[in-house]
Write a protein that binds this DNA or RNA. Structure first.
Lengths: 327, 327
DNA sequence: CTGAAAGCGCTTACAG
DNA sequence: CTGAAAGCGCTTACAG
């Protein structure tokens, strides 16, 4: 900055009042002040271009207005939608959101958790949390964690907001089963993130018995593409693929297109998330629709009254199968 | 939080040292400390689970580690890529990024600028800044603003990082001209955001004289779709559309598909940004490629040494025409 | 190599 | 309705 910003003392001096009074004006206690006092403060503040320091405020009140949100990949459109929803709801509570990428990486996540502690974040929202000692320690010590869409382990008692991943997997498995889809393949997400495993286990249960080719993949287009290039090279079979998320499905679709494999005739593709872009750019993709824009309000409610929402209290959002052309 | 976090005083007490010494340990001044002192501090901190408060630190040092980034729409994949790039570069400097949506709305932007002042943000990065009195006032008073990809006005002297929007518009106009494209249409972005106008003016200049149908649109798929539905209803002509960004182009493409208009035979579409998804989901879209991942490093450099980069110092990134099927 | 003390910008219980 | 004063968690110049 060009020069240091004015402080509450500057405003007090200029208005001829005390810092206590100026503070009352800026912290919503105008009610107790005399009308002419209010006017003096307003004018002085205006003249100086004063904005109260959130730092001083936070230190004094022992709480910040910052909420940290950790996501595996902010460039995933579904994640972006969820983050936008959360940001908006948080702003409604006068809170700011700090977005950070954990990149499906435990160490990176732990580093960011340390940052969140340093910032004394009001809450930490973890989408795709990874089970690490540090995470468990924080979960035990503080009650300001919220898991989104994936819960790293059953025995960590932290509120969860998201769909029932297992049930969604079952629904897809049943759908495959009813349709008589052949040679099921599950390109699931990374093992350390439990949501991936729940989706997979549900899928297996829903298929009740059929043997499933299981492939692990990161939640990226490139990874889905690579996996597909591999198993599709066996042209003697027609596969039916359940992808851990839409990104993976995009990759599979591209691989199929390059290999001139017809969807859905020779290859069934099912995604997960149904990010908003699908309607516009992938109107062919059958997928599990997760209500991205319901996350913000649910999370905001949890943050607003952490007491009510005892540890472990969860919000389970609805999902549905969005059937289009690919399955 | 369950209980209040330990403070530097707790660590001092437990280790039998002074807060000054503990502070030295945590602020990278270990060099001056005796080895056994270091060990004591480490153990005490470990035992208490102490992490220094960024709040206390910020207040004392009169600077925060927070950088605020305002974007028009974080769910735009191009924006998400830029934000990811910025976040990564900032983390490399030990800074945190607060992402906020200004929604192409001057009032919302001004509110967020006030928040940034309150947080005493180290820097404020504005993608798609809107020219408001408050913005001008902040630009005049502080030198921690950075404009990204759009500069609200020539006479606001703030460093700019982005491409030359006018030149890119010219390039597209020339391309249309050389190809002899008929009935040029410009679905440009909102007038208040200057980048839109620069792209448009460049396009007009590049076409040198042809009359152009100019339509204003927000940078959203839905808006592009609506505009296209309207002007495409005149089936007697074949149009050539330059879109303000890829989102608009997606909307136009969908409208064309629904109306059974062939691209590029009966409708030429040109986008802007070339977000990463294009390669996977819109491999038909000809567009202007903007190097999203070059923004972070350039911005980080500007923030790192604000002195060197005198006000108004800018970084102009290269663009190129990415020709695919639609033009 | 280490500590006592001042002070960063706020808020609020207390007193008037 | 208003103010003086204490204190939130740090860092650092100064002194030893």
């Amino acid at each position: 900055m060009t020069k240091k910003p004015p402080t509450i003392r500057d405003v007090a001096r200029l208005s001829g009042l005390s810092t206590a009074t100026v503070s009352r004006f800026f912290s919503g206690k105008e009610g107790v002040l005399a009308p002419e006092t209010i006017e003096s403060v307003r004018q002085a503040a205006q003249a100086l271009g004063y904005t109260p320091s959130e730092i001083g405020r936070s230190l004094r009140l022992a709480r910040t207005s910052v909420v940290m949100m950790l996501v595996p990949d902010a460039t995933n459109p579904f994640t972006a939608d969820v983050a936008a929803s959360v940001e908006q709801s948080l702003n409604g509570l006068g809170l700011s959101m700090v977005l950070a990428n954990a990149s499906e990486n435990g160490d990176q996540q732990d580093r960011l958790l340390a940052d969140a502690e340093g910032l004394r974040a009001r809450a930490v929202i973890l989408q795709g949390a990874i089970d690490t000692p540090r995470l468990r320690e924080m979960a035990a010590r503080r009650n300001n964690l919220i898991f989104v869409n994936r819960r790293p382990a059953e025995d960590i008692s932290v509120p969860y907001v998201g769909i029932d991943n297992y049930a969604a997997g079952v629904a897809v498995g049943r759908y495959f089963s009813e349709r008589g889809y052949q040679n099921p393949v599950a390109i699931h997400g990374p093992r350390p993130s439990s949501g991936s495993m729940e989706r997979l286990q549900g899928f297996l249960a829903g298929l009740s018995g059929s043997s499933v080719l299981q492939l692990e993949s990161s939640y990226k287009m490139e990874a889905g593409y690579q996996q597909a290039k591999n198993f599709l090279s066996d042209r003697s079979r027609r596969y039916s693929v359940f992808c851990g998320n839409d990104m993976i499905a995009y990759g599979v679709y591209r691989a199929a297109a390059e290999m001139k494999i017809r969807v859905p005739e020779d290859l069934v593709i099912f995604g997960f998330d149904d990010n908003r872009l699908n309607e516009w750019l992938a109107p062919w993709l059958s997928t599990v629709k997760v209500p991205a824009f319901d996350f913000g309000p649910a999370i905001a409610r949890l943050i607003e009254k952490p007491n009510e929402g005892a540890r472990g209290k969860s919000v389970i959002l609805p999902f549905k199968l969005q059937i289009r052309l690919s399955a």
